[in-house]
Design a protein around this nucleic acid. Sequence first.
DNA 1: CCATTTTTTGGAATCGCTTCCATACGCGGG
DNA 2: CCCGCGTATGGAAGCGATTCCAAAAAATGG
Lengths: 358, 358
Amino acid sequence: MKQKPTLRDVAQYAGCSITTTSNILQGRHNLYRAETVERVLSAAQVLGYRANHIARSLAKQRTATIGFVLDPNHARLTHNDYAQHVLDGVLAYLEQCDYDVRLISPRSSSLERLWSRIDNGTIDGAILLAPVIGSPLLEWHRHSRLPVVVVGSTLPESYGFTTVDIDNESAMATLTEWVIQQGHRAIGFIKGHPLHWSAQQRERAFRQTLMQWSVPVREEWILQGNYTIESGRRAAEQLLRQSSLPSVVICSDDGSAAGFIQRCTELGVRIPEDLSVAGFDDEPLVQPLVPYLTTIRHDKYQVGYLAAQLLHQQIESGDTLPQRLLLPGTLIVRRSVLPAPALTHFAPPQSTEGGSRP
Amino acid sequence: MKQKPTLRDVAQYAGCSITTTSNILQGRHNLYRAETVERVLSAAQVLGYRANHIARSLAKQRTATIGFVLDPNHARLTHNDYAQHVLDGVLAYLEQCDYDVRLISPRSSSLERLWSRIDNGTIDGAILLAPVIGSPLLEWHRHSRLPVVVVGSTLPESYGFTTVDIDNESAMATLTEWVIQQGHRAIGFIKGHPLHWSAQQRERAFRQTLMQWSVPVREEWILQGNYTIESGRRAAEQLLRQSSLPSVVICSDDGSAAGFIQRCTELGVRIPEDLSVAGFDDEPLVQPLVPYLTTIRHDKYQVGYLAAQLLHQQIESGDTLPQRLLLPGTLIVRRSVLPAPALTHFAPPQSTEGGSRP
DNA sequence: CCATTTTTTGGAATCGCTTCCATACGCGGG
DNA sequence: CCCGCGTATGGAAGCGATTCCAAAAAATGG
C-alpha cells in the first residue's frame, strides 16, 4: 500500500521539527511541553510509525545486535545440543536489554570473506561458540576491535579472550576423585575430540588426579574418542581386545559413554556389574539411552546467559579487559559406577598440596 | 588502535573519488581503466577496508538479511529438534547468496513491541517457524509488506501465506492406509498438540482414511497428546484403563509414541506383540529409545532450505504471490507394527476415488 | 583542426535517524 | 530599559555507503 512512514512524516503530521520528534520518541519527554509530547506521540500512533533500526544504527554507531558465531568446523548447528542451550541462554538475556542476535555460520573458506561476514558493522559484539583448536576465528580477533566473548572453549589465557565456560578441569577432577574413592585403581579413559580444548582439559585433569592419588596411568587404557556415540563404540572394541581390563572407564562425554556401554553390552560385558562407566555432560539426548549413567552435569543455558551479560556489559562500558568465568559442574551419581571389587583401603593422596577440591 | 577505514579513506588513498571507489569495490570493473581498478583494489587491501553493511543497507534499502522468527509460544529453541534442522537448511541456502540470518524470538507480550522487533527495517523478509493457531505473528502479517514464508505450519489457504511444510495429510494417510493393510481394524490414535495445525491435519487424515476404508472410528481410542513423551505416557495409562483395546495405536509423533511404548512396557503390555504402535516424524532423538518404531520420515532440513530459497526469490523479484510447497514424507517400516492377529481379509476401500496414493 | 562520440571520472543528493549547537522567547533583577 | 538566564524548539551536519547524472578527457571522423 503506502510507504512506511518516516520520522519526517511524523514530524510534519505533528507540526514540529524532526529533532523534536526524534527526541520525544526516544523518551526525552522532559525536554518539551506536555502538549508537544502528546502531539508527537499521537502522530506516531496514528501513522503507525516504527523507527528504522538501520538508520538508527548508522547514526548512533551502535546496532544493538550481537553475533552468535559458529565455528566453521562445526558443520551444522543441529548436531550440537550444546549450541542450542547456549543460544537459548543468550536469547533470554538479550531479550531483556532489547538486543538482537545475528546468526553467523561461516562456511566459506577464505579468511577475508570470513572476516567481512562477521565484522562488517552489523554487530556490536560477538559470541564465539566453542572455537576449535586452530580455528580461523581466533586469528581474526587480533585484527578486530569488536568485543568478543568465547563460550564453550576455555582457551589458554594468552589468547586474551573473555571466556565463559564450564570448569572442565575441576569437574573432571571431582569425577575422577570420586571414582578413585569408590576404590577403583584400574581406570581407563576415553578422550574427547582432539580439536577441542575441553577435551584436552578433561584429559589433563584426569591424568593429574590419578597422579595425585598415586593411581597408575595405563596408556593402553586411554582411548581416543571424539564426543560421539560411534567413537565410544570403537573405543569399546579396542579396549575389550586387550588382555587386562580396567575396573572402570571414565569417558570425556556422555555420547562416547553411551556408545561404549552399548557396544560392551552387545559384546557380553555387563555394565556396571563387569565394568563401571562414568560419563560427562549429563547430555539429555543420551539420557534415555543410559538412564543410569553417573556423570557430570553443567548448566549450558547459564553459560549462554552469562556470556550475553558479560558481552553486553563490555559493549556498554567500552571496557574490554579479558575476564573468565568458569561455572562448576556437579557430580550426578547414578548406578553405572559400582564400588571397586576387592579393594577398600588404598593410598591417600600424595601430600603435595592438592588437598581438598571444592 | 585506529578507526576502521571508510570508503572515503580508500578513495583518498587511491587518489580518486568515492564514487569510483564504490563502483569498483562493487565489482563494476569494466567501467574503469584497468590501472584505476588496480589502484583502488590495492588501496582497499592495504588499508584493510571492509564495507560497512549498515550504511550499505540504508543506501540500498536492502539488508541482505532475513529474520528467522520463532513463535512466542515456543518458549525455547532447544526443545525443538524441528527448529534446528530447518534452521540448518535455511543457513545452508542463505550462505550461498550471501544473506544473513537474524534470530527473532519474541517473548514480549505487547503486540506493538512484537512488531517493532520484527519489522524495523533490519530484514528483507522473514521465515515464520511453525506459528501456532492464534499466534499474534499471523495477525502482524496483514499490516506488513514484508515477504514472509511460513514453515512447519500449513495454514489454511485463506491466510494468504507462502508456505513450505511437509505434507502432513498425505503422509498420515499413507501411514494409516498401510496399517490398515496390515490387517488392523481396531485402531487407536494419539493426537498432537492442540494448537498446531499439523496436529489437526494429521488427525483429519487419520479419520478420513479410516472412513475411506470403512474402518470404524472409536472415539474412546482417540487420545489427546501434545507432541511430548510425557503426553504419550499419559495416553497409555488412559487407554489401558479401558475394557476393550485396539490392536494398534497410531501416534501423531514419535515423542508420544515413545512415551506410550515406555509406559505400556512398564505396565506389562508388550510392544509390538500385544499391541502395535506407529509413530510419525522419525525423530532422531527418540530413535535410540525405540529403534524399532515404524514411522514417517520427512526432511526438515530440506524444508528450511526450500523456504529460504523461496523467500530469497520473493525478495529479489518483489513478487509475493502466495505459494505452497508440501514435501512428501516416506513410510519407514520397522518392527513396531505387526500384522493384525486373526484377520487377513477385509473390506477394500470404499469406492469413491481415493484409489492409489503416491 | 574542430565537432561529435565514447570512455572515465566525480559532484552531490539520498537513505532515515541522531545530536551538537544556535535561536527565540519570556521573565525577574539591576 | 537592558542584560542574562532558563525553557522550548529547530537547523544542519554528520553516520558510510549508493547512484543518478553531468563533466572532463580521450578517441573518432570529416
